[in-house]
Amino acid sequence: MQKILFQIARTGIISERPPAADESLRQVSGRLNDEVLKLLGRALAIRHVDAGSCNGCELEIHALNNPYYNLEGLGIKFVASPRHADMLLVTGPVSRNMETALKRTYDATPEPKLVVAIGDCGCDGGIFGENYASRGRVANVIPVDVAVPGCPPEPAAIIQAILTAVSAARP
């Protein structure tokens, strides 16, 4: 126990300030009113769905919970069920084998649900594109509010996308 406490003290607090929202990532605006967004922005529950990624984007989503980005410190946490979620964070080109599961997850998420598509593949199908086994971008299967490119997008860019989705669109 002594060693653990010493290591914690030696590490100190290393969390960094989150980035500001970025309007250019928004796909649709004015879908939710400011009051709803204010409520969500203070305690957001996210359900991650990997719909067919190479698992690169997952590495960066994991990193959101490391002490540098400390996503939970912003009141944002990952939950185990879509029924508990306000937002879906979707990666991948959507494989056809995952299409039904993704739609069902979307249907199980209570309104008003927000969807953030992660990575080049989530935005436009990426290097895999659309083919006999891939539906391509996430928006081909479910409605997307915010999309963030990158292969994979860095954690700060993912946080920015999440914060953009829960901030009110400037007119």
Binding site: S53, G92, M98, N131
Partner: peptide, 11 residues
């Protein structure tokens, strides 16, 4: 498994 099959070999 196989849920993530996205046609890599054909691609």
């Amino acid at each position: 498994l196989g849920y993530k099959h996205k046609g890599i070999e054909k691609r």
